[in-house]
Write a protein that binds this DNA or RNA. Structure first.
Length: 246
DNA sequence: AGCACA
């Protein structure tokens, strides 16, 4: 079959883009997008994820895949999937996404008020289409390209988690894992104190191997994270530093 | 409930 029937009984033709609603509106847009990437990447390459916080568009998102088969698999397999405590409702999107139109040359700017599109915009669009063609979301390339920690961290918890978590967004508090059991707060303080803005180290006796390190702000915590990422207290224990969850 | 391209 080549179409699905949505809850309202309307037939929706296949599309590489899926439209998701009934999303938890309390989740911040950036976190939501990253979590969607985390959950939907299993079905194939994602070109872009769009979500907006305006009234009319809250609780909804568009995930643009490279192939329709990915979109179909996603709809089949994740229909009703509990995501941040709410079952996702997934359909094919009704219209073609701009990234796709730009890539296949059918893109027409929708504000008809412009008589000429200026050269600068055109070049930018072409650039974005190129990025998309390489599997790089232009929006992410700009926004997160300079934040290496976000891309290099596998999600902690991995397979056992029913709702895969995207890496946490920047936070002035760092979460340290894979520490040797003999690590003391004093040892960590010596390491982290050398970076500006250091506030404190917290460890929990009953949870060996992890610690929280707090800085004044997220710029400072990011500097420390990048400096000490994979630092080995013992040769077997490269530390894994991520932002703590908010 | 709400199908866009910050």
């Amino acid at each position: 079959m080549s179409e699905t029937v949505n809850a309202g009984g309307d037939e929706v033709p296949k599309n590489v883009t899926i439209y998701i609603n009934n999303l938890n509106e309390k989740i911040k847009i950036e976190k939501l997008k990253k979590s969607l990437v985390a959950v939907f990447s299993q079905f194939g390459k994602i070109l872009e994820v769009l979500a907006f916080k305006t009234l009319k568009h809250k609780g909804q998102a568009w995930v643009v895949f490279e192939n329709v088969s990915s979109a179909s698999d996603a709809i089949r397999q994740l229909q009703g999937f509990p995501f941040y405590d709410k079952p996702m409702r997934i359909q094919y999107a009704k219209t073609k996404s701009d990234v796709i139109a730009k890539a296949d040359g059918t893109f027409v700017p929708r504000e008809r008020r412009k008589r000429h599109d200026d050269k600068g915009k055109k070049r930018k669009d072409q650039h974005d289409a190129n990025l998309a063609g390489m599997g790089i979301n232009p929006a992410y390339a700009g926004a997160y390209g300079a934040t290496p920690a976000l891309s290099q961290i596998p999600y902690p918890g991995g397979a056992k988690s029913m709702v895969p978590e995207a890496p946490a967004p920047p936070n002035n508090i760092l979460f340290i894992q894979n520490l040797p059991n003999e690590t003391t707060p004093m040892m960590l303080q010596m390491l982290f104190l050398q970076y500006p803005g250091f506030k404190e180290v917290r460890m929990v006796e009953t949870k060996p191997g992890i610690a929280f390190v707090e800085y004044g702000d997220e710029m400072q915590s990011t500097v420390a994270m990048q400096a000490l990422q994979s630092f080995k207290i013992t040769p077997q224990n490269p530390m894994l530093i991520t932002y703590a969850k908010k």
